[in-house]
Write a protein that binds this DNA or RNA. Structure first.
Length: 585
DNA sequence: GCCGTTTTCGGCCCGACTGTTTTCAGTCG
């Protein structure tokens, strides 16, 4: 791993560069360039996207070609872009076809070949032109097109107008998937069953739900599934695959596969696509072919394995790679060397570092939250109710916190020494970087958390300075939801995360992975970067406002696993004794 | 355009589906 001093702003240039390469790939695709060249550009773009070091530094040091997938040709283009803001090759292809032609690739059924024909023969430059031509019946005349394709294009365009393509939050999708799974187990002749796809990888948002089963009576499974209560519409029902839509508009596919293929199918349908491509490339080198039916010897088409997912990896010389890591971010290379990190497990979590109670805007009492935490197997719980500046959440005065402290002391006495409730608080980082109370008033707390709850629209410099100032208040140990996003409803505020990371490194401040599925903040890549570049520590807190919210921990752990964090990177894996020592430090 | 524990040249993931074909190309996941 190449370590250099970096700024997060520079990392943002990685995204810029990767977008240029994706763009170039799209143009070349339309122009009919060789598939392999296009793949090379896409691969390079992906690598840069996931890089944890700034591309500019690598370029300066002449180390671009050390990145896998980047050779002399692409390296030159990157350097040119960084120096001049332009890539000759990209400018050149842009002269050959209109920029808006790329829009057409978003229309289902229209690919690069189709887009070029539409432009070349009919002069179609954008979606508007396409729609007009379809209505006028011109498209059916083209070679390779026909009435059916024309109709499908028109349908797709009308469809796209009313329905935006929306991904569903994991926090909504996972419980639905689990409900379907449980129902199938209870009500249908199921042998094995697994929820696959991006849910299994714990991606923060998901497109649709894929469930695989084995059964000796496939028809009965399909009957049961398509008649479940949650079915708003059964889109199609086949012998081995059915698709339904739930009232929330989520598409669920259930497939019945042969037991002998179950492991290979689970591997295939779990993805990611990029991970699977690398797996199959690796297989070829070993004279094997991997598909959703199993692993086969290329020459003889002889089955090697496929019943268990683990076998698929083992036969390639790999340990089973955790689904959350399957994004082709280097996990296969590490697995080959048997150097996969032992990523954190939900069982490692010993306490929740961020919950609210009735004192502020929560629904349950301190006792109820503690009781539930004990049931979850925790050793401790940090009560972190909102402080006074957050009026809308009934933020507490120091007097109220003192009242809380008396209650917590009493409860701790009753519970005994196997479990401990800590008095914390979630302070508000105000617009000037100060918090609700004077520093000396904070001494009553066991631990202070602080986060931004207002003034999201300040500029980057100001927000960054605010957070840094709060991090310098000694009692504040944790910065909650560091980027402030709400999935699907509010973007991150402008913040220079690299500056925050540096400050956290200097002060030993913990950054929160907020496990609330609407937040998941920090996200997977930010967590990964924080660890890779600065060796930061994190807390996973649910921000629970009720006893049910405590169960959101698994989403936070999912983020941490996707960020390759291990047990030692997360402070609430510490035992009660260690945690007490930590907050006193 | 990139890459090499069988390769510095000759490869580059796999299968399903659709609509167009008359054995297949393009698109999709």
């Amino acid at each position: 791993m190449i370590k250099v001093k970096i700024s997060y702003n520079l990392i943002m240039r990685n995204k810029e560069v990767s977008e240029k390469l994706y763009e170039l790939a799209s143009y070349l695709e339309i122009l009919g360039e060789m598939k392999f060249k296009i793949n090379a550009y896409i691969e390079a773009a992906r690598r840069i996207e996931n890089l944890t070091v700034p591309i500019e530094e690598l370029a300066k040091e002449g180390k671009l070609t050390e990145i896998k997938g980047i050779g002399e040709g692409i390296a030159k283009k990157i350097v040119q872009y960084l120096e001049t803001g332009k890539i000759d090759k990209l400018e050149e292809v842009k002269k050959q076809i209109p920029e808006t032609l790329i829009e057409l690739l978003n229309v289902p059924g229209v690919g690069p070949k189709g887009a070029y024909t539409l432009y070349n023969k009919l002069g179609i430059k954008n979606i508007e032109d396409l729609k007009k031509a379809a209505i006028e019946g011109k498209i059916r005349e083209l070679d390779g097109f026909g009435p059916k394709k024309e109709e499908n294009i028109l349908k797709a365009l009308q469809h796209a107008q009313k329905k935006e393509v929306r991904r569903i939050n994991l926090g909504i999708a996972l419980p639905i998937a689990e409900y379907v799974k449980e129902s199938l187990i209870k009500g249908a002749p199921i042998d094995k069953i697994e929820i696959c796809g991006s849910i299994r990888r714990m991606k923060e948002t998901i497109g649709d739900i894929d469930i695989l089963v084995t059964s000796n009576n496939s028809n009965q499974v399909m009957d049961f599934f398509t008649n479940m209560k949650i079915v708003k519409e059964a889109i199609n029902k086949g012998d081995t695959k059915s698709t339904i839509i739930t009232p929330e508009g989520i598409q669920i596919d259930v497939r019945v596969v042969e037991p002998i293929s179950f492991g290979a199918a689970v591997q295939y349908f779990t993805g990611s696509k990029e991970h699977n491509v690398k797996i199959r490339e690796l297989a070829i080198k070993k004279g094997l072919k991997v598909n959703e039916y199993g692993v086969f010897k290329i020459d003889k088409d002889e089955r090697v394995c496929g019943e268990k997912e683990e076998e698929v990896y083992n036969i390639l010389g790999l340990p089973l790679i955790p689904p959350e890591m399957r994004e082709d971010r280097g996990e296969i290379e590490l697995a080959l060397e048997n150097k996969l990190p032992k990523i954190i497990d939900i069982k490692d979590i010993k306490g929740d570092t961020h919950v609210h109670t009735k004192y502020s805007d929560g629904e349950n009492t301190i006792y109820e939250m503690a009781k539930k935490s004990i049931e979850l197997g925790y050793e401790y719980l940090v009560i972190a109710d909102h402080a006074k500046a957050l009026g809308v959440a009934s933020g507490l005065s120091i007097e109220k916190y003192k009242e809380q402290k008396r209650e917590i002391d009493r409860l701790n006495d009753e519970i005994g020494d196997k479990f401990r409730i800590f008095l914390g608080c979630e302070l508000n980082i105000l617009s000037d970087g100060s918090v609700d109370f004077e520093e000396k008033e904070l001494s009553i707390f066991d631990i202070c958390l602080a986060g931004i709850h207002t003034g999201f629209n300040q500029d980057k410099k100001k927000i960054t300075e605010r957070i840094k100032k709060a991090m310098n208040i000694k009692k504040i140990k944790i910065i909650t939801h560091p980027t402030g996003r709400l999935l699907g409803s509010r973007d991150e505020y402008e913040v220079d995360l690299d500056e925050i990371f540096k400050e956290a490194k200097n002060n030993g401040t913990i950054l929160e992975i907020n496990a609330n599925p609407e937040r998941l903040d920090l996200n997977d890549l930010n967590s990964m970067h924080g660890k890779e570049l600065y060796n930061l520590k994190f807390s996973i807190g649910t921000d629970a406002h009720s006893i049910n919210g405590l169960s959101d921990m698994r989403y936070g752990v999912g983020v941490a696993r996707r960020g390759w964090l291990t047990k030692k990177d997360v402070i609430n894996t510490l035992s009660l004794k260690e945690f007490e020592k930590f907050i006193k430090s």
